[in-house]
């Protein structure tokens, strides 16, 4: 059984972003970049499925310039077997990403596709669902548990108000939520080994995909800052403020 995992290179989640002075975008110059945390969870889940003997091969795919190979190597250090980088400059919108991944999967024919539920830069939460639509396969978003047996995936999803469990025939697509697993640390020998794993580079043109770029980014602003208030010195003072000043209780 083959697993296809898509990963995105994003700003490290510990870094606070700054908006550029000209308001055209955020400033990512000299910023620490990492694998998107939800993508990392997707890689970890694929590796666990492989360790459990369910999956036999893990293919990791990333779209971007050469720098995204760093995150692909990281995914390989975690346990992915080989990588496909689709060379693209600048921002690629979700539908185009899904179209590229669908094209990659045409030759890969993965049984299970694992993606993070959202990237922490654009916060879109779209690519997995779009890819499932284009491939006409079932989708289980916000997964907190994945069980695969007998050609079926049983997935528990974290939804508003509780949990929902669905069963999907394979091939199927899963997007990962935070609590699906806790990714392992990549050990040094694995990082060294990952450098020798096969990594194929393709271009968007090779795949025959024409980018739509139908969403334009007009400007980026820093949100209005909320200013701090006062400190009170006792529970009584707090209750008094809430009752008489804010009038919220």
């Amino acid at each position: 059984m083959k697993a296809l995992v898509a990963v995105k290179r994003v700003i490290d989640y510990n870094v606070k972003v700054r908006v550029k002075a000209d308001n055209t975008d955020v400033d990512l110059a000299n910023t620490k970049m990492s694998i998107n945390p939800f993508c990392e969870i997707a890689v970890e889940e694929a590796v666990r499925l492989k360790e459990a003997g369910v999956v036999s091969e893990i293919v990791v795919v990333s779209i971007g310039d050469k720098s995204c190979q760093e995150q692909m190597r990281y995914a390989m250090a975690l346990g992915a077997d080989r990588g496909i980088q689709v060379e693209a400059e600048g921002k690629v919108n979700s539908l185009d990403v899904a179209r590229i991944l669908a094209k990659v999967n045409e030759s890969e024919n993965a049984d299970i596709l694992l993606l993070g539920k959202q990237a922490i830069d654009s916060d879109n939460n779209q690519t997995g669902q779009m890819l499932a639509a284009l491939l006409d396969v079932p989708q289980a978003t916000f997964a907190s548990e994945v069980k695969i047996a007998d050609g079926k995936a049983q997935v528990t999803r974290e939804v508003d108000g509780g949990l929902v469990t669905v069963e999907m025939d394979l091939p199927a697509l899963v997007t990962t939520d935070l609590r699906l697993n806790e990714p392992r640390f990549a050990a040094l020998p694995k990082i060294m080994q990952a450098k020798r794993k096969p990594l194929e580079v393709k271009t968007v043109a090779d795949l025959g995909v024409e980018l739509t770029n139908s969403i334009e980014l007009l400007s980026v602003e820093t949100p209005a800052e909320r200013s701090g208030g006062i400190k009170v010195d006792s529970v009584d003072a707090l209750i008094d403020k809430l009752r008489n000043e804010a009038q919220v209780i």
Binding site: V17, I120, S214, I215, L218, V220
Partner: peptide, 16 residues
């Protein structure tokens, strides 16, 4: 719409 965990607000135009 907010991006980067609400640390920036993007104005986007859809041509669809």
């Amino acid at each position: 719409r907010p991006i980067y965990a609400g640390n920036a607000i993007a104005t986007v135009k859809s041509n669809d």
